[in-house]
Amino acid sequence: MGVTLSASAAKHVAGFIAKRGKGVGIRLGVKTSGCSGMAYKLEFVDETQDEDLVFDSHGVKVIIDPKSLPYLEGTELDFVREGLNEGFKFNNPNVKDQCGCGESFNV
């Protein structure tokens, strides 16, 4: 199953990497903290680590560390616009409840 990007997310990530001028892909991860236990991590990747898992989605490399994978299995990263605001959103099937902020969640 792994982790995927929506077509729109992939297009935006590819565009951002091109404009940034460097980067091999994007890292999705989780860390503990936040108002409901776990928080998402979303970063550019310049160098992958040995243990990293790499998925390909619409031609973009999605990089995940093995510890994060169980929490993200089946997740799709989407790019959305809400009014003036725009950005990425995790559609994560493992989530039981999430904080209204969309940045932290419980499994």
């Binding site: 990530v13 951002f16 994007i26 890292r27 860390k31 903290s33 936040g34 108002c35 928080a39 998402y40 991590k41 979303l42 970063e43 550019f44 990747v45 310049d46 959305v80 809400e82 605001n85 725009e86 950005g87 990425f88 959103k89 995790f90 904080c99 209204g100 902020c101 969309g102 940045e103 932290s104």
Partner: peptide
Amino acid sequence: MALLQIAEPGMSTEP
């Protein structure tokens, strides 16, 4: 709801 942006490597902030 806050939409997420991509941070520089190692620069993710807490929620």
